Simulated assay, not measured.
Amino acid sequence: MPKQPKAPSKPKPNPVGRPKLHDQAKSSIVPVRFNAEDRKRVELAAKTSKQTVSEWIRSTLNSALEV
């Protein structure tokens, strides 16, 4: 009896969602509250230095922690 050819298998669908990160890529979130005036000052400083607010806060903290 001749073997029947296998039906072509369907490709596996790509998983949904963000790809898994390696351990060193994981970070934590630190919630911080700003009043309206301070928030505007931070946003202006970030815009002036052509950074996002998060980038500006991280770089400013890193500079302060180097002392």
Rank of each mutant, 00 (worst) to 15 (best):
W56F: 14
Q51G: 07
A7R: 07
N35P: 03
H22A: 12
P13T: 00
A45E: 11
R58H: 10
E37H: 13
Q51Y: 05
S59V: 11
K26G: 00
W56E: 09
Q4E: 06
L21E: 08
G17L: 01
K10E: 13
P15E: 01
I57G: 06
D23L: 10
P8L: 11
V32F: 00
T48E: 15
P8Q: 03
A7L: 09
K20C: 06
K50G: 15
L21R: 04
V42N: 13
Q4Y: 05
L65I: 01
K10P: 06
K40A: 15
E37P: 11
R39I: 00
V42E: 07
T60G: 09
I29G: 08
E66G: 07
A45P: 00
I57F: 09
M1L: 09
K3G: 10
S27C: 12
Q51T: 13
P15I: 00
H22V: 07
R33H: 03
P11I: 04
E55Q: 14
T52Y: 00
R18W: 08
A45G: 08
V30H: 09
P5S: 05
P2D: 12
S27N: 11
Q51S: 12
Q4A: 11
R18L: 08
S59Y: 12
P5K: 09
R58W: 04
K3W: 06
V16Y: 04
A7N: 03
P15G: 02
V16N: 11
S9Y: 01
K26H: 06
Q4G: 06
P31G: 06
T52I: 01
P31S: 13
G17Y: 00
A46C: 05
S63E: 12
S27V: 07
H22D: 07
K47W: 11
L44F: 12
P31M: 04
T52M: 02
V16L: 06
A7Y: 03
K40E: 15
N35V: 01
K6A: 11
P11N: 03
S27A: 12
E43Y: 01
S59E: 14
A25G: 05
S49W: 14
V53I: 14
Q4T: 07
K3P: 07
A64M: 09
K20D: 10
P2E: 05
E43D: 15
R18V: 04
E43R: 10
T60Y: 01
S49N: 15
S63V: 04
K20T: 06
K40H: 14
K3S: 11
K26I: 10
P2H: 11
V53D: 03
P13Q: 01
N14F: 15
